[in-house]
Simulated assay, not measured.
Amino acid sequence: MTMIFQLALDRFSIEEALQMARNCQEEADWIEIGTSLIKEFGMESVLAFREAFPQKFLLADTKTIDNAIYEAKIAYEAGADAITVMGCGPAVTIDLVAEEARKRGKTYMIDLLNTKPAEQQKLRETFPDAVFCLHTSKDMQEHGNHEANASAISWQGRRLAIAGGIQAETIGSLTRTLHPEIYIIGGAITKADNPLVAAQRLRQCAVSAEE
């Protein structure tokens, strides 16, 4: 299975985020235009990344929980290859995002934040073509709760991403436990003295854990 590193960019200006992505692009298989960028700058942030990185896979972290068709349409048409939809949201919203993604030949990621195992199992069975993200939110991280980076169900046969507070010291155990395809990493890279070196170290730790 291919190992994908998704560089998560939040709480930057558009130009700061673009520069961080340029600095780390050799280790960033996917680039995430984070929720904070989208909330502060709208689809201009996605358009700017598409112009700067025409060949990169771009994920817009829209965290859609309502108004699915509209949010999917504007993000995909701005250049996003994937968007996120909240698994705790209405079933119809997830259905509509999935339909819009399929119609356009795009990817959709279901964020499992605040979902229980029974809900996750149902989502797993209902949306076999989705990417599923086990996500520890920033607020949870800041209050010492990392339980969302665990799973009570099997994700074998599905595309799995993990996100939230991943560090070089923890990525190995997450790799051995969950065997994710996609690692979504922000601060451990973007706050490092040398972001590219930090990204390279994280990847090596994950690769070593899979060996």
Rank of each mutant, 00 (worst) to 15 (best):
E27Q: 11
A28Q: 08
W30F: 12
I31N: 04
E32A: 09
E32L: 09
G34H: 02
T35F: 12
S36Y: 09
S36H: 10
S36D: 11
L37D: 05
L37I: 11
F41H: 14
F41L: 12
G42V: 08
M43Y: 10
M43C: 10
M43F: 11
S45I: 05
V46R: 05
V46H: 09
F49G: 04
A52Q: 12
F53P: 07
P54S: 06
K56N: 06
A60I: 15
D61K: 07
T64V: 07
D66Q: 12
N67L: 09
A68W: 01
I69A: 09
Y70K: 06
E71V: 06
A72C: 10
A72N: 03
Y76R: 06
E77K: 02
A80Y: 06
I83K: 02
T84I: 00
T84H: 00
V85R: 01
G87E: 04
G89Q: 08
P90H: 12
A91Y: 08
T93V: 11
T93L: 03
V97C: 03
E99N: 02
E99I: 04
E100G: 05
A101R: 05
K106S: 14
T107Y: 06
T107W: 07
D111C: 12
D111G: 11
N114W: 13
T115R: 01
K116Q: 15
P117F: 15
P117H: 13
P117W: 14
A118Y: 12
Q120T: 08
Q120K: 10
K122I: 13
L123D: 07
R124V: 03
R124M: 04
T126Q: 12
P128A: 08
D129A: 11
A130F: 03
A130W: 00
V131N: 07
V131A: 11
V131C: 11
F132P: 01
C133H: 01
L134F: 10
L134K: 04
H135E: 10
T136G: 03
G144I: 02
N145P: 08
S151T: 15
S151N: 13
A152C: 13
I153Q: 13
I153N: 13
G157Q: 06
